[in-house]
Design a protein around this nucleic acid. Structure first.
Lengths: 227, 227
DNA sequence: GATGATTTGTACGTATGTATA
DNA sequence: ATATACATACGTACAAATCAT
């Protein structure tokens, strides 16, 4: 490997811990963003060359991604970006709805005032953004909204697996917010969740969130049907 | 709360016949069985020597275990068997109750007759074993009982994370079935679950399973208090 | 706080298994 | 079906970071 660092790669982002970890984050990001489409073959050597590292950290990153379900790794064969069956995706959405509903219900009971204020802030920010209509930015803040609720449930493990589930479904709902009018609809559903959480209404928060995820799932289904 | 019924029953993917995979299973087993106690340091070289392999597959196994939460891996430091705080354990039990309840509820709706028969068989087997009172064997069949319900939900992803959650709590409830009288009590709770599932009663199956897990958790708490 | 010992992180070579002709 | 090509699995060597003294 050459020592002279070509400037075509990103300037070293942050204090890097290990190359394997860096690669894991980078690859996960590219998978979630759709740069690496489901089914893509992830050749160790190719990736190693692309990032100017040896195959060792690449292998490690791929295994980690495999463990989190984002890529499929089989012995002696190239890893590929996971492409769950329709039934499996359906199952993931089903679980996601339950987990998100559970988070919302617990958040209604357990959020402290600072957390409730933070939730409102993010919610307001999203409302403003309906007008500007930047789907990418909306998507980011929408994630912050959901993360806020995960954390508000005050259950680390729950937050962890809910986030993981979301990440695993993500690659298959990318074009979600490009659908015009979806933003306003999404915000209306969010509003019901937020109001219930702020009032401390466990069941209503949970069912509102459940309904929201079901809608998200239906949007996904409609999208894939009409490609 | 449930959407439509996906027919998703594929066994979860952990397909590999490599040393790393063998090590992963072996180490996971030792952790769950308590041979490797929480907090134990997992030195790569030591493990490599113990199994007569190089560090490479050991590293891989440790990373995989880290991804599943059984061990804690930090950069440049030895991996250690995870030792969750009391609050984290509480959170895991909370999630486990929800997931198991979800599985039971869905199983009540979705199990086919062969699966229902299989559930009854395992349940009967457990009843017989109350007398013999072999805690280790009871534990094994008890796992089969729960796995049967996970699979009966016909949702691969749900089965996967429920099993993972169970595995993560396992190291901290080992002495569970040593408590005399617990076996009969456990079987009585199981019975309510089984009857509800066989009758296709979604909500009753779910709440009965929820109650069962809550009891298991309480037994755990009682145990740790009286060590 | 600095230095040596120890352990992890990465590179690379070779063996082995998989896929394709 | 056999052989050939090629990617992965593992071992070994060295670099870098941590910890013990």
């Amino acid at each position: 490997m050459s020592v002279s660092a070509p400037a075509d790669t990103q300037p070293i982002p942050f204090p890097r811990k290990t190359r394997a970890e860096e690669l894991r984050l980078q690859l996960a990001d590219e998978i979630v963003r759709g740069v690496l489409a489901p089914g893509s073959s992830l050749d160790e050597t190719t990736i190693a060359n692309r990032f100017n590292v040896s195959r060792t950290p690449v292998r490690e990153a791929l295994r980690l991604l495999g463990a989190s379900g984002l890529v499929e790794v089989r012995a002696h064969r190239a890893a590929v970006v996971a492409r769950p069956s329709a039934a499996q995706l359906e199952g993931m959405f089903e679980v996601m709805a339950e987990l998100e509903a559970l988070c919302a219900g617990l958040a209604a009971e357990r959020m402290n005032s600072a957390e409730r204020r933070s939730l409102e802030d993010i919610h307001d920010e999203l409302r403003v953004m309906i007008q500007s209509g930047d789907p990418q930015r909306y998507h980011e803040v929408n994630e912050a909204f959901h993360n806020c609720i995960y954390n508000g449930a005050h259950n680390t493990y729950l937050a962890e697996i809910t986030l993981a589930t979301r990440g695993r479904v993500q690659p298959f709902r990318r074009a979600q917010f490009r659908i015009l009018g979806r933003l306003a609809k999404s915000h209306f559903e969010h509003d019901r969740v937020v109001q219930a959480i702020l009032r401390g209404e466990h069941d209503i928060a949970a069912s509102a969130m459940y309904a929201h995820i079901v809608t998200v799932r239906e949007e996904y289904l409609h999208y894939t049907e009409t490609i």
